[in-house]
Amino acid sequence: MSWLAHFNYWAVIVVMMTGLYMAIAQSDLMRKLIGITLLQTAVFFLYISFGFVRNAQVPILTEGAERYSNPLPHVLILTAIVVGVATTALGLALVVRIRERYGSIDEAELASLADEVEDLEPHHDFDDQDEHP
């Protein structure tokens, strides 16, 4: 049952592929973002499970730990989480503004709307309030 011993990787792969599929195949911009988030989360899992060592202790605040988990992946992934949050936030902000200027967040519809000339004026008051409520 050696494949079961790596079940964490299997889980990661499933989540990762789900996320990747969503990010590419979904036409709804929100779902794409969710896909990206899933993909990133899968990577967080991956890193964290690297650091895990069976029967090991936390390396800090315990004296004389013989086997200890590697803390570095956790630290790294903390950074990656922050990056992920920032990406998601920025993505959401973009989706909100796309919704405001196009009235849709569906890729297929957007593609047909993209080439139409936009009437800039009516929406302008929203733009000005961006980050300046």
């Binding site: 936030a89 959401l92 902000a93 909100v96 919704r99 405001e100 929203f126 309030q129 961006d130 980050e131 409520p133």
Partner: peptide, 14 residues
């Protein structure tokens, strides 16, 4: 907090 503010704002205007 800024993020929350700006998203909250948007919802009310739209």
């Amino acid at each position: 907090i800024l993020l929350a503010y700006s998203f909250q704002q948007r919802g009310h205007d739209a």
